[in-house]
Design a protein around this nucleic acid. Structure first.
Lengths: 240, 240
DNA sequence: CCAAAAGTGTTAGGCGTACACCCATGT
DNA sequence: ACATGGGTGTACGCCTAACACTTTTGG
């Protein structure tokens, strides 16, 4: 922190939602625990206080960058959590006060979410951090109300994708199979889809272009690769 | 203010969206101007600082109640505005500092919206306040970034209604004509609808029930009244 | 009788959904 | 040969959207 922190009562937390071969995951960091008889580190969402003169969006972007080394993903504010009881847990309160160096009555946090693919490149960028990607359906105990925050994020991701379907492709490799795309959709919407109907849908979207390339070395019929063509997409939907 | 205010850097603003015979309107209050060479009161959204130990939602509800005497309407947080440049206008800054009695570097506000009908009963409740309902397409100059806040609210109202169609009926009298319902929909979605298709839609919704009553004293064929039956609605859609 | 708004049916296309079998590949 | 996932077509129902004339009422 080389700039002076803004009010110690306002923070930004980021729900970074990633996707890899195994499924949807959330990025968690360890809350380095303060000595107080409590044992074991507890996980939390990445977040930080806001610097003076820093836009909320910029603070979120900074946290995203510090955690992942990425700056491109679509980042979206989705809710502000400010219940006085957010930090009623003594261990949480101690940690906040130790971290900020002040007595804190209440901590209001503006929550953002971003969707990204967990690529090997990303994993490499993140090696140095004490972070981990945790499957959404296997979350550990979390500090503060971070579980609520994640739950709301997972609800909102659905509306975000409905409004802007291109977001899906931020979570996929540049070449992907129909199965990967379908699994991702299924995880986001929480229900399984019919394979045939799904292929029809892909075929109907001109911005999902079939490649000649296929999978290699798999123990079954090799799947075609597809890619997302953003130019075609933008031309069709005028939004940029 | 009989309780101590929470941090003077965090406020709640409410975009109260009302509907009457004339159309969609926003509730604005006059920012009583501080002497400083600037003349003329400027309008703003109703809002206030947050009390200690007060939930954000509760603060919004309090503002709603103070302004309208109503407590029932659906109130929904939709965005937090915290740009350092929000109060760059000197007149705005002066007002904030005079009102809170402190030097303020930055003011972060959590924005809520509610939809309600502008009934004669409501008008009576509000007579005492220095508030006015202003048509959405005829907004005056506004303090801070309140115009941006309203614009976002008007965008969000659409998603809110799509998710929960019953919200529409909070803005209508208990007995309403097809025209009123259609006009309201048109204003919310920003496009006109076909009359026949609209009647078909009404007829298809079992929770919009036709009354025997008709308009009286109008200079044309009298329109039927309808009412919204929340019981039927809830039974159909399982929520709450 | 005129003005002003109310009310009414049919058709066509798009979209989602349900459903079952053969194909390619590695072991 | 067998296990594993890849890939394909048809039919139905629902919703949306386009489109024009007659009815009722007060003035």
């Amino acid at each position: 922190m080389n700039r002076q922190a803004f009010y110690p009562h306002l923070s930004v937390d980021c729900v970074l939602i990633g996707f890899d071969e195994e499924g949807l995951k959330i990025l968690l960091v360890e809350k380095t625990h303060v000595e107080s008889g409590h044992t074991g580190a507890i996980s939390k969402l990445p977040g930080d206080l806001i610097y003076e003169d820093e836009e909320l969006d910029a603070a979120a972007r900074r946290i995203l960058f510090d955690m992942t080394g990425m700056s491109s993903p679509h980042l979206e504010q989705f809710h502000t959590f400010g219940s006085p009881s957010r930090i009623k847990n003594p261990a949480d309160r101690e940690w906040v006060e130790a971290t900020s160096g002040r007595k804190i009555g209440r901590l209001v946090t503006v929550a953002y979410m971003a969707m990204l693919r967990i690529s090997t490149k990303l994993r490499k960028l993140m090696e140095s951090h004490k972070t981990r990607w945790v499957p959404v359906d296997d979350l550990p105990e979390l500090a503060f109300d971070h579980r609520d925050i994640i739950e709301l994020a997972l609800e909102r991701i659905r509306s975000a994708v409905k409004k802007e379907p291109a977001l899906i492709y931020d979570m996929l490799p540049s070449k992907f199979t129909a199965l990967q795309l379908r699994r991702l959709n299924e995880e986001i919407h929480g229900k399984s889809m019919d394979v045939r109907n799904f292929h029809k849908k892909i075929a109907a979207r001109p911005y999902i272009v079939q490649l000649d390339e296929k999978e290699e070395g798999v123990a079954h019929r090799a799947a075609r690769y597809y890619r997302f063509d953003r130019k075609i997409y933008n031309r069709l939907y005028c939004r940029n």
